[in-house]
Amino acid sequence: MHGDMAMLLLADSRLPAGGHAHSGGAEEAVRVGAITGPEDLARFLRGRLATAGVVTAALAAAACELGADPAQERWRRLDAEADARISSPAQRDASRTQGRLLVRTTRRIWPSEALDSLAAAVPDGAHHPVALGAAAAAAGCEPRQAALAAAYTSVTAPATAAVRLLGLDPVLVHRLLADLAPALNDAAHEACVIQADDWSSLPAHAAPALDLLAEQHLRTEVRLFVS
């Protein structure tokens, strides 16, 4: 199938779906001094991947599986599972905004019942990982490929933001990303262990500092990124 190519397109930061304007908490972490250079950034990315990254990968894998045989009621239930895993309202809003833009874009690239039924089931925007999984299904990906794309974008967005905000050496930051390869594979593996009919036990790793950063970001007057 064409899953590999589709996975690359979905993971590419140039996918025109609004992802470039989200920093995944990195902008606020830079502002409050929690990220000041490559060492902090490496720890930020590692922690983000092990928490939000694993959760987003698992939801994307589940959505990809559901996308093979979509039903509006099931989309709403999976979206509610995402809701229960994101306690910060700021992060829920950012996730739904990204999900809405992703569905808008990918419906034109890969017209499909999976994306049409998701858009109809959650018209104000499904959570980003659910939208990503649905798009992956529409594009012919396997759940594992959806999980990889989700985990990958969970760290590339903040890494790119840190490069722009702190003027870090982009080659060094790409080396940090390359160092995450084993953790990325583990995250995708963990995401796919759960059976499709048991969403309740999907990973739900919390990152309390990310929640606080997301809420603080909304109260910060000068912001370059949406989240």
Binding site: F44, L45, L49, A50, A209
Partner: peptide, 13 residues
Amino acid sequence: GDPAVDDSPAVYG
């Protein structure tokens, strides 16, 4: 106590 999250500014700072 997991090396992936300990000391991460994204998790507990």
